[in-house]
Design a protein around this nucleic acid. Structure first.
Lengths: 109, 109
DNA sequence: ATTATAAGACACCATTTGGTGTCGTGTAAA
DNA sequence: TTTACACGACACCAAATGGTGTCTTATAAT
């Protein structure tokens, strides 16, 4: 028991704008407790907590208990999967095609 | 009327694994009609069509009618938003921190 | 002219999602 | 030692999601 449900898809975790804002907030501070994150949003504490749980399941957030509060910290490394994924498609961007055309042109000279 | 619903969040469009597979398939071919995409999946034609509609709403796919078939083509440019977003967080990756430490060490010498 | 194919448009359904409120418990403060 | 706070754990709910099947129309093939 006491297993971490780390089976959440990173793409899925990041799809929600609230969760992206949470990631941003956590990137700007070392560590933040739930009650300091909550007032940044219009929703209640429970909802924010749920979003943090999803981020935890994706490995994007680590939490530790300090006294009566739970402090959350960003772990950005799983985002590498997204970067790797998107990197493949940069070859299909028009700007890159333009850059490629330039390279080919330079090669002609 | 006849407006394109291009108001779909790219992160949301890309969150679904089926849609990511569609993007991949379309990246490997110039242009594909629905009935050639469908057999790659276990679901029915209607479901695949719906996923393509969502990709269209996100601007990731362009379709044109040729005879009785609708051919789909990838437009990767909206993925730039994702790359820009993820690029910001690369600074928080441990590997990058290691690289930074190396740079600082080199500066000491 | 008839038949088969491609796909849009619906109606429909189960499950997931994203929010709410409340209760109970551990910890800190008065 | 009493009171206030932080938060997890539920139970609950409306709306969105991801699939299905059927009907219709336009086009292609026989």
């Amino acid at each position: 028991m006491s297993e971490n449900n780390e089976n959440r898809d990173v793409f899925d975790a990041v799809a929600d704008p609230t969760r992206r804002r949470l990631i941003r907030l956590l990137s700007e501070a070392e560590e933040l407790p739930l009650h300091e994150l909550t007032p940044h949003f219009q929703m209640g504490r429970t909802a924010v907590s749920k979003h943090l749980t999803i981020l935890k399941e994706a490995g994007l957030v680590i939490d530790r208990k300090v006294g009566r509060e739970t402090r959350f910290r960003l772990n950005a490394t799983p985002l590498r999967e997204i970067q790797d994924w998107v990197a493949y498609y940069t070859q299909f961007w028009s700007t890159n095609i333009l850059r490629l055309k330039q390279l080919l042109k330079e090669e002609e000279d």
